[in-house]
Design a protein around this nucleic acid. Structure first.
Lengths: 190, 190
DNA sequence: GGACTAAATATACACTGTGTAGTATAGTTT
DNA sequence: AAACTATACTACACAGTGTATATTTAGTCC
């Protein structure tokens, strides 16, 4: 028996999954401001009061879903964390593959207007990764080679990356993860 | 008398400005989901019903404010539309100056979570500008010099630009518009 | 399998906000 | 001054929120 996962009542798991699926479905159909606890519960086929047994309100629910997303992505990123080999950046390709594999989910949560919690979290995650990458680069070069402020480079790079991913999803992924990863890498290596 | 501006009842102008100011104030104090028509009217010192004489609902009001923002920016951008001279990009500097000059407004509307209408519009505007710029570049070079998809380059460039501007505002503009414009130009010229 | 426990349901309530009436009042234009 | 129109005031039906209480149902443990 796994001591780290103290075995949760299957009813809880079931209810939470019904709620999560209901939200995803509704987000596909309408804007977030039209989605009420009423609607979520109705779609999930559970009592409205039960919603409050699991989440404080809708923003709280989205936040917890965002936490889960970050967990997922961190796993994918760390899995293949061999740092860049011969100019390539396998992490990026794997991230894009992961997103493509769960594109229904990611398309909804990253491209729905008004829901910034998921993009905010992803932005933070990418910023951290790029920061690490830039620090390492500077150390390798002994001196800071460029005359570009690191802070600005991080803003620029993270925004570009997440924005490109979102546009890629909005346009129903017209390029393969590998191709897009290579194109991005071309633009990154100024 | 100006035939293009058919003289609007000063009461209307007054009411709309009170409403706009109220929204800006409230956005500084709380998240968008806490802002109701009730609160806006109360803060503006007008009757709640009067709000509906001007706007259908809050999203409609924000949309109209976004329209006005785009108008403003287009004016600034077209004003100095001499295309890039000796590698510099005066348009970018002027845009950043304009934002800095109205930083209270832009900080609120571009950095408040959940309000994507303003960033969406700005993104579209920047995309168009960058598209024009890339097309011109390709024509100058006769052949498409890079092996980077133009579409991806536009996604990448627009996202990077707007994301950098937002981060700059979030951090209370630690660089001058000129300096930031030069740094961005350095990164753009891959 | 029976007792215990926890989750989910059913129902109700006070509250806030929405959008739309009808009428009265005040300001604007000519 | 008269005609016009924006705003104020009041009221109403409706939808959604968050909480409380009692009850039923399902899962767990021995």
């Amino acid at each position: 028996m796994n001591h780290l996962t103290p075995r949760i009542d299957p009813r809880v798991l079931r209810t939470r999954e019904l709620l999560r699926n209901a939200v995803i479905e509704l987000l596909e159909e309408m804007d977030i401001e039209k989605i009420s606890v009423n609607r979520i519960a109705e779609r999930a086929g559970i009592n409205r009061v039960t919603f409050y047994l699991h989440y404080r309100d809708i923003p709280d629910m989205l936040e917890k879903m965002a936490d889960a997303m970050v967990e997922d992505i961190l796993q994918v990123v760390n899995e293949h964390s061999h740092l860049e080999e011969n100019g390539e950046w396998p992490m990026l390709e794997n991230l894009l593959k992961h997103i493509a594999d769960h594109s229904r989910f990611y398309k909804i949560i990253l491209t729905s207007r008004q829901i910034t919690i998921f993009t905010d979290r992803l932005f933070k995650l990418l910023s951290d990764i790029i920061t690490t990458r830039l620090v390492k680069k500077d150390q390798d070069n002994d001196i800071s080679t460029t005359n570009i402020q690191r802070e600005i480079a991080i803003w620029y790079g993270s925004s570009a990356l997440i924005g490109t991913i979102i546009a890629w999803l909005r346009n129903d992924m017209p390029y393969t993860p590998l191709y897009l990863a290579r194109q991005i890498t071309l633009m990154r290596s100024q």
